[in-house]
Simulated assay, not measured.
Amino acid sequence: MTGTTDEDPVLVDARNDAGEFGLAVPDEMTGSLLSTLAAGAASGGSAGAIAVTPAAGVVGLYLLAGLGERGHLTCIDPEAEHQKQARATFTAAGYRPGRFRFLPSRPLEVMGRLAHGSYQLVYGDMRPSDLRAFINAAWPLLGDNGVLVLADCLLDGTLTDETRRDRDTTAAREADEHVRQMEDALVTRLPLGAGMTILTKRPAPGS
């Protein structure tokens, strides 16, 4: 795979496959940002990334494109069929099996068993009700200056609408407030998708 534009036939096929499953995928602009973030994570050499999303075929292509030859990607999703398709996609793109692995588990059940401080990027496409728990599970996995990407977590800006008190909006609002209180996080919010939040993990003082 030499690029991550929509003209890349492997990416086109991955998007079509995701569409058949009814899965939301990042647009080209968001995908380019993911590749850039992954490249930044890999600038120090070998880098590990985690993608928690049912659309791992598309998200993974963007991340792998940025991670470089020494980077590796862990995809977490309980649906075996999604992972089977993503595996075929990565193989078609020319990535060798050692560059990626799949954990067919519920994310919040398996993330606690992963090595703390061993990853440079974690991407999550989560239901609002799971957002805060996901943030708490992902944060210890990141090393200093690691990046946590929360896709579509701002619900198109409706978090500030005080008349919205449905369960999803309330959960997303609580997760966003939790992020605001994280003293070791540099927080960036972008108008991509339904609203993306990027958290960069600040090194501990004196480290």
Rank of each mutant, 00 (worst) to 15 (best):
Y123P: 00
Q85C: 07
Y62K: 02
E81R: 07
L61P: 03
R87C: 10
P107G: 06
L103Y: 05
F100P: 13
M111C: 13
H82S: 03
P104M: 03
Y123C: 04
E69R: 11
V122C: 05
E79R: 11
F100T: 11
H72I: 03
S105A: 14
E79V: 15
H72R: 12
Q85V: 15
V110N: 05
V122T: 02
A65H: 14
A115F: 06
P78D: 08
E109R: 15
R96W: 02
G94L: 04
A80C: 10
T91L: 11
F102E: 08
T74P: 00
L73S: 05
A88G: 04
G68Q: 09
L114M: 12
M111N: 14
R87I: 13
H82W: 00
P78R: 01
L63R: 01
H82A: 00
G124T: 13
S105F: 10
C75N: 08
G124S: 07
S118G: 14
R127M: 12
F100R: 07
G112L: 06
F102P: 02
I76R: 04
K84L: 12
E81S: 09
H82M: 04
L67Y: 05
L121N: 09
K84H: 12
P107Y: 15
Y95M: 07
R106I: 13
I76T: 07
L121A: 13
L61G: 05
L103G: 08
Y62A: 00
Q85D: 10
G117K: 02
P104C: 07
G117I: 03
A86R: 03
A115I: 13
R113H: 15
Y119F: 15
V110E: 12
F100N: 09
A86D: 06
G68R: 11
P97R: 00
P78H: 05
R127L: 13
R70Y: 03
G68K: 11
L108R: 12
A86Y: 10
A88E: 11
L61K: 10
R99P: 07
F100G: 09
T91G: 04
Y95P: 15
D125H: 14
L64P: 05
R106Q: 14
R96I: 11
D77F: 06
Y119P: 00
M126Y: 10
R113V: 07
R70Q: 09
L73K: 02
L61W: 02
E69S: 10
G124V: 10
L121Y: 09
Y119N: 04
S105W: 11
H72D: 10
G112R: 07
E81Y: 01
L114S: 08
L121D: 10
L121T: 08
Q85L: 06
L61M: 13
P97I: 02
R96M: 12
E79P: 06
A92G: 04
L64F: 00
A65S: 10
L61E: 10
A65M: 01
G71N: 09
D77Q: 02
Y95T: 09
L73F: 06
A80E: 14
D77E: 08
L108N: 15
K84A: 12
G60I: 03
R87D: 09
L64V: 06
R70N: 07
L108T: 10
E109T: 15
G60A: 04
P78A: 05
G66W: 05
F100D: 06
Y119D: 02
P97V: 02
A92C: 01
L108I: 15
T74N: 03
T91C: 00
G66T: 07
R87N: 12
Y95N: 09
G94N: 09
L67V: 01
Y62V: 01
A88I: 03
